[in-house]
Amino acid sequence: MVNTDTHTGASFSLKNRLLRVVWGVVYFVFFRFSPRPLHAWRSFLLRCFGAKVGKGVHVYPGVIIWAPWNLILHDHCGIASGVNLYSQGLITVGKKAVISQGSYICTGTHDYTKHGFPLYTMPITIGDNAWVAADAFIHPGVTIHEGCVIGARSVVTKDMPAWSVCAGFPCKVLKDRVLVD
């Protein structure tokens, strides 16, 4: 961050803010209103702005992305319309992971114990084969481990273990996730 006092100035550099303006124009003109099936087109646009995007990624046009250069989207993951990727810090989404509509993935927060409420960011990782169901909120610094399912409308404030089903406010483990064929 370039400023530790959010009352007196911006937390991010001028370069960062200008790049976000350019991204905002590209997002509005070319990304947001692109036809739903054009996942490859949206992946291309994200790559143009520094995102690392794997093969077969499905990012829908209604996804809100703060800074694409802070995204790593692994092969065959899906991000539904209405998801907010508030990527002030790094967001990593694993292979075949799904983030459902209305979820909010938030990497930034403020330190309320200090004058000026300085902004700080912590990365979020969503593991391979994980599913974040509709309207979940993922706090900064959280890891959703491989195969974990986060229930709809959950508020995740700490790491969730692999191959578990978790839900609630605050989110907690409910049971193991067992796959059946």
Rank of each mutant, 00 (worst) to 15 (best):
V53A: 06
W66K: 10
W69R: 10
C77S: 10
C106N: 13
V21R: 12
V53S: 03
R36C: 09
D135V: 02
L174T: 03
G147A: 08
G108Y: 08
C171F: 00
H7G: 04
K172H: 12
S43Y: 06
A97G: 07
Y60V: 02
P68T: 10
P37S: 07
H7R: 10
V149R: 00
A136G: 04
W66T: 13
P35K: 05
H110T: 14
A80E: 07
G94N: 06
K175N: 14
K55Y: 11
A67P: 00
K15I: 15
F137S: 01
V173L: 13
F44E: 02
H74T: 04
N16A: 14
D75F: 14
G147V: 06
F169C: 07
L119I: 15
D75A: 10
I144M: 05
V149F: 10
P140K: 10
V156F: 03
G108F: 07
L18S: 12
G9R: 03
Y120E: 03
W23H: 07
Y27M: 09
I91A: 04
F33H: 14
Q88P: 00
G54C: 13
H139T: 09
P68C: 11
S103P: 05
V63I: 09
V57E: 01
P35G: 08
Y104A: 11
I124Q: 03
F33A: 05
Y60Q: 11
A162N: 03
L85E: 01
G89K: 06
Q101P: 01
I64L: 12
P68V: 11
